[in-house]
Simulated scan of single mutants.
Amino acid sequence: MGSVLQFIKHQSDDGGRWIKGKRRFQNVEKEAVELINMITGANIAGNEKDEVVDVCRAWENSLKNAKDEGQREGRIAGQIEGKIEAYIDCNMTIPEIAKKVSKPEEYVREVVKKLSAVSQ
């Protein structure tokens, strides 16, 4: 239970430095990890066969995966913005563009506004 409480207490501290190298987090029972995930929304995964999880390693992996996912989403957003810009250059309307890129009109308006601010 101590590991669960410590994790909850420090989960948002300084990119997880508080967890690195701490023995208490190297062999945490699977049930405790499930509780941590449920309470905090963390996505700590261990080997399904193991009864204990190295939360230090799993936490670092989840942070890396989140960073990779953020970069991927950023690239996708950039691609969509590029398409919107091209459609604007073709004199398409906001509703037409929204339909083409499968995004809400409000999203397209925000991108157009951002692009206009950058070009000025």
Rank of each mutant, 00 (worst) to 15 (best):
M1Q: 15
M1I: 14
M1Y: 09
M1F: 09
G2T: 09
V4F: 09
L5H: 09
Q6V: 04
Q6G: 08
F7H: 02
I8R: 01
I8L: 05
I8S: 00
K9I: 07
K9D: 08
Q11I: 13
Q11R: 10
D13S: 07
G15N: 06
G15A: 07
G16Y: 01
R17M: 05
R17C: 05
W18H: 00
W18T: 00
I19S: 00
I19F: 01
G21L: 06
K22Y: 03
F25C: 00
F25G: 00
N27A: 07
N27Q: 10
N27P: 04
V28H: 00
E29A: 06
K30S: 05
K30Y: 03
A32T: 11
A32Q: 13
A32Y: 14
E34A: 06
E34F: 03
E34D: 10
I36Q: 01
M38L: 15
I39W: 04
I39D: 04
I44E: 03
E48W: 07
E48R: 03
K49F: 02
D50F: 04
V52I: 07
V52M: 07
V53Y: 00
V53P: 00
V53Q: 00
V53S: 02
D54F: 02
C56P: 00
W59A: 01
W59V: 02
E60I: 02
E60L: 02
S62L: 09
S62T: 07
L63V: 04
N65R: 11
K67M: 13
Q71Y: 15
E73W: 03
R75Q: 15
R75F: 14
I76F: 13
G78H: 10
Q79V: 13
Q79F: 13
Q79M: 15
G82K: 12
G82M: 14
K83A: 13
I84D: 10
E85A: 14
A86W: 12
Y87W: 12
Y87C: 10
Y87L: 15
I88Y: 10
I88C: 11
C90D: 14
C90A: 15
C90T: 12
C90Y: 13
N91E: 14
N91L: 09
M92H: 14
P95N: 07
E96W: 02
E96P: 07
I97N: 04
A98V: 05
V101R: 08
V101S: 09
V101L: 10
P104V: 04
P104K: 11
V108I: 10
R109D: 06
E110K: 15
V111A: 07
V112T: 06
K113W: 13
K113Y: 13
K113C: 08
K114D: 14
L115Y: 05
L115S: 09
L115D: 08
S116Q: 12
V118K: 12
S119D: 14
S119L: 14
Q120D: 12
Q120G: 15
